[in-house]
Design a protein around this nucleic acid. Sequence first.
DNA 1: AGTGTGCTCACCCTTTTTGGGGTATTTTGG
DNA 2: CCAAAATACCCCAAAAAGGGTGAGCACACT
Lengths: 210, 210
Amino acid sequence: MKNAMAKKLIIVEDDVIIREAFVTLINQSSDYIVVNAYSNAEDAIKKIKEDAPQICLMDIELPGMSGIDAIPKIKAILPDTHVVVVTVYENDDLVFKALCEGASGYLTKNTPSAKLIESLKELDSGGAPMSTNIARMVVSSFHKNRQTPLTARELEVLELLSSGKSYSTIATQLFIDKETVKSHIKNIYLKLEVHSKAEAIEKARKSKYI
Amino acid sequence: MKNAMAKKLIIVEDDVIIREAFVTLINQSSDYIVVNAYSNAEDAIKKIKEDAPQICLMDIELPGMSGIDAIPKIKAILPDTHVVVVTVYENDDLVFKALCEGASGYLTKNTPSAKLIESLKELDSGGAPMSTNIARMVVSSFHKNRQTPLTARELEVLELLSSGKSYSTIATQLFIDKETVKSHIKNIYLKLEVHSKAEAIEKARKSKYI
DNA sequence: AGTGTGCTCACCCTTTTTGGGGTATTTTGG
DNA sequence: CCAAAATACCCCAAAAAGGGTGAGCACACT
């Protein structure tokens, strides 16, 4: 028997076995009800308004539109619906792309059943369910590289440069002369082996110096 | 009785009640052993080399050096030690600062005992333990604002501008004329009510348009 | 005492970039 | 078909970028 306040879900997953398994599993919980399950994103989006789910479990690899691209389309129609990606991929690019597009969580398909239901509850209590490795990837993305050829001052300058500031503005902000800023930047270019702002920023971002 | 492979922990927490509670709790687990507990960061750092912990539980509000500032100092000595922040603060700035400085996890002090031990295990299995609200904050930090006055093309241009690229470079990359890039940027400045690259980037970042 | 590194500042030079003004055409979506 | 968006072009002056060279000062390390 369903709770009167049971949350509505939809599932988008092309593998019929997995899809049905999810439906069965989730419908066993009295707090959640699967209102629809789709094998592709296009159909799900077409019906999303009437389904009006609070939660959407989304696979990435789908025939036609990818699950990643489907996220912003769903959020455009129902901004408060939580889209949780459920996939086999633990690839950096996909994870961050999904999160940037608006995913509220990212689970890998080896997630045990109990953990899946628990993840749904986390959504309601203001959380963001992630599989172990995903959480590590996300947290690591904030970490800076502590092995940098640049000095602390150079990092400061590069940081400001990367926010679009001009030499003069950086100088004012650091209470130093514009010529000193130029010196620092010359040294930065030397050390990073680049010859322009854009290259320096790209290299520094890639190496996580900033 | 401790497991032979028991992980070594240190605890840095100024409140003696809480500190002792952590010690007692963690020492009950056969997989973890508290080798030392400190009431301030300075002492912990002084002894970190001989303590050689795999994990460090770190409070933020401490007498003297803050727990945030202690993180990079610890990682400088023992790069592979996981520092987990355990604090009452759920403030955005502190969370992201801690993660940027190298924290492997961020727990709030209301974390139940069982969950704390579970969090330690998550560290070993390649995870990043976070309290519910923290996980949401971290994931939300990736989300873009879908309500933007800018068009898709303008966002593309602004994105490239924010990576330090010049008008010409942006033009080449988008297969359009430099003059067109200028037009887009003029419109961006108009819409964002700014008059320079730096202001535009700052405003766009703050509003999470990019 | 000498060496090296980092931070600071200065002056030279040229080229590129930027921002603001205006105008106009084509493309696209509803 | 209309409006919005994307595209392109003109002119102009100020600012910024980049590259070169040199040099003083402090601090740490040997």
